[in-house]
Nucleic acid binder design. Sequence first.
DNA 1: AAAAAAT
Length: 484
Amino acid sequence: MNFSSFNLHDDVLTGINSMGYNSPTPVQEQAIPLILDQKDMIACAQTGTGKTAAYLLPLIDKISHGNFDHTSTLILVPTRELAKQIDEQVEGFGYFASVSSIAIYGGNKGDDWDQQKRALTTGADIIIATPGRLLSHLAMGYVKLDQLNHLVLDEADKMLDMGFMDDLLKIINQLPKQRQTLLFSATMPRKIRDLAQQILKDPAEINLAVAKPAEGIDQRIYLTYDNQKLPLLEHLLRELDVQSMIIFTSRKSNVNQIVRSLLKIGFTAEGISSDMTQDEREKALQGFKNKQYQIVVATDILSRGIDIDSLSHVVNFDMPQDAEDYVHRVGRTARASSTGVAITFVNEKDMFRVQKVERLIEREVPKLPLPEDFGAAPAYDPTKRHDGGSHRQRSGNRPGAGGRDKQHRSKHHREGSKPRHADEGSKRPVKAANHTPRPRPEGGGDKAAVAGEGGGEKRRKRNNRNRNRGAAGQGPKEENQPAS
DNA sequence: AAAAAAT
């Protein structure tokens, strides 16, 4: 199957080609026809499944060939980084279709407010926004939404988690009722179903089984107390051949501490958390993508949506909240090459999450013993659930009652994990091996932005429907597949 | 329970 079977217009297909995409992912196969068909949709799909392109491509097609002369599409996302990334993808996919976009988010010093205001006033085709900043603009009254025909909620569960429910509803209430609404979420808790019921009409449902991490990924769990994590990390780093690594931690306060410790033992590293300025955040992310740093240490800010390829290692310094997040993070390795290492530190409070992960990926993750001299680790007890400080007791389940020691635990190594087909879980199409990034056409459009530099906001909106296709088959930019 | 997000 390839993209030409979707009845997309040529200028969109050219954009797809220039981005190095070949064949649609499962979510794209399902979603694109539905979206072209003007259906509302609720999709359970996580990052890395090609979700972003699944909605961008049909929307770009409709925008480019529809009768809109200002903003027709609003995409709401939880983090600024995600807004920026999606904006860049629109730029790539929509270049030949002359679809304009603007990322609307806060946190930037300087003149970006005026720039955003201009784009909102003249009506960029697609607005990609975090809720807070968009609401500020909406309050000023110059945002033209009367032609708003498509609304996308991306990472909807994350947005609700972050307390955006009220903001979302405030925004949605200002949109025309007659519209197509698409909701994407990695998990489908009750709250999401309720929201969907409120804002979607007779939605089609897509449920994508979680893409299990490829067989080539070496997944390991270490059971540790919190105070053992940093020494353990340093110890492991001395043994690993790190090309590029992301370390996820659930606490901002850990970020600097970990970075310092990495620098101390000779790695190049940067942190990313909301404690940093937006400028610093973007520099750190860009520097990592450019291989300027070997390691980036991030909070949950990067837990969803951000597309970074070809990691050699992922470390979950803290166990992720959702099993889906674990799968997504781990899946970031072993993409460029066929091998990758994913290491997760699990403390005594997070053990119950291990089973959730193992159920989701349908295999057991080896629990490795701590190195010599590290002292005793907490005993593995997946039934032990941190109960948020209530006094509820579980009968007969005292911590450590099983008396397993670390030697015992290491025995889990790969035993009992189900054999799987070699290609299972790696159904994503792979970027064309011979795809070479092509330079952006000079003057081929006013969307010219410095490729991959933090100055994406320099982009001006493009409202000109008379496209200039004389750009001699030049692709808009380098991008990896699959994106989400 | 912490994180992110408007100023």
